[in-house]
């Protein structure tokens, strides 16, 4: 196994493009180092991207925020401007693993690991985040929802690395929230995850909405019917009921060791309602 720590993105993508089949990108390492303990794990090349400049920075721009691929979750929590703009994204990133894990893990790693249960991914999708993908022939922007294609699989081509996540500047009176269900209080994997992002007008009516579900299908699900259910409303009970039902209807879960189809479907609706209420309050609704 070869370990490389290049100092430019160009060198990193070139290493990966020229590598044998089993190559891995190392940022926080909270997934990779655990996998390396498995008897079945084999790697030819590990490319550590933390020495590349800009990887560990959150930059506020005119358009929004650029979050480098090496930024640990805890640093997002410490960025007051980001917390103010996208509290739901930050709270999702700070639910990953444990306090110790949050000191190392990154939202880009969470995305590229492509677990259907990733906590930060529904929040990023609800926020309309974009992944900035570097490759041997330059960079391209890809909507976060298009990165995972199924459990453990992404749309990234050989040699490509997500170098940053771009979050837009939220419109006025916008709020987001993420809730997940775990049987314990922490250090667990989402059985259901729901992110809601709402924008209100002056009188508190929802004028834009994005609702994303995690752990209830092979990849993150953006529920357009749920968004339609709340747009034009002030989250009255009947609207919340419709939101809840549309989220349950959008679920395509499986029975597994973490939960049943019935449980996941039912709880997705409950969490959607609760997350929407939090997002609504954060957006300034009353």
């Amino acid at each position: 196994m070869r370990y490389e720590r290049p100092d430019t993105m160009q060198a990193a993508t070139a290493l990966l493009a020229g590598a044998e089949a089993k190559s891995f990108v190392l940022a926080g390492g909270t997934d990779l180092l655990v996998r390396m303990q498995n008897d079945d794990f084999e790697a030819d090349l590990i490319v550590d991207i933390k020495a590349i400049s800009g990887m560990a920075k959150v930059t506020e721009t005119d358009d929004g925020f650029v979050i480098g691929a090496g930024v640990p979750s805890v640093a997002l929590f410490e960025d007051t401007a980001l917390v103010a703009a996208w509290p739901g994204v930050v709270e999702a990133a700070n639910l990953i693993g444990s306090t110790q894990i949050q000191g190392r893990c990154t939202i880009v790693g969470n995305l590229c690991n492509a677990s259907p249960a990733a906590d930060s991914v529904p929040a990023l999708v609800a926020a309309g985040a974009v992944a900035q993908v570097a490759g041997p022939s330059g960079t391209r922007d890809v909507a976060v929802i298009d990165i995972p294609t199924g459990p453990g699989k992404t749309s990234l081509a050989k040699g490509e690395i997500i170098q940053a996540i771009l979050l837009p500047k939220p419109n006025a009176r916008t709020g987001d929230a993420y809730l997940r269900f775990i049987p314990r209080t922490e250090m667990d994997i989402a059985v259901v995850g729901v992110a809601v992002n709402l924008t209100l007008n002056e009188d508190g009516t929802v004028i834009a909405a994005r609702v994303a579900l995690g752990a209830v299908g092979p990849k993150v699900i953006l529920v357009d019917t749920a968004a339609k259910a709340v747009i034009g409303s002030k989250l009255e009970d009947v609207v919340l009921q419709a939101l809840s039902e549309s989220c349950s209807a959008a679920c395509t879960p499986i029975n597994d060791k973490r939960g049943t189809v019935a449980f996941r479907t039912q709880v997705a609706g409950v969490l959607a309602r609760r997350a929407a209420q939090t997002a609504y309050t954060r957006a300034g609704g009353k």
């Binding site: 269900f181 049987p183 939960g259 019935a262 449980f263 039912q266």
Partner: peptide, 11 residues
């Protein structure tokens, strides 16, 4: 009495 069992019993 895990959450799925409690919820199923209530349902």
């Amino acid at each position: 009495v895990s959450p799925p069992r409690i919820l199923a019993a209530l349902t």
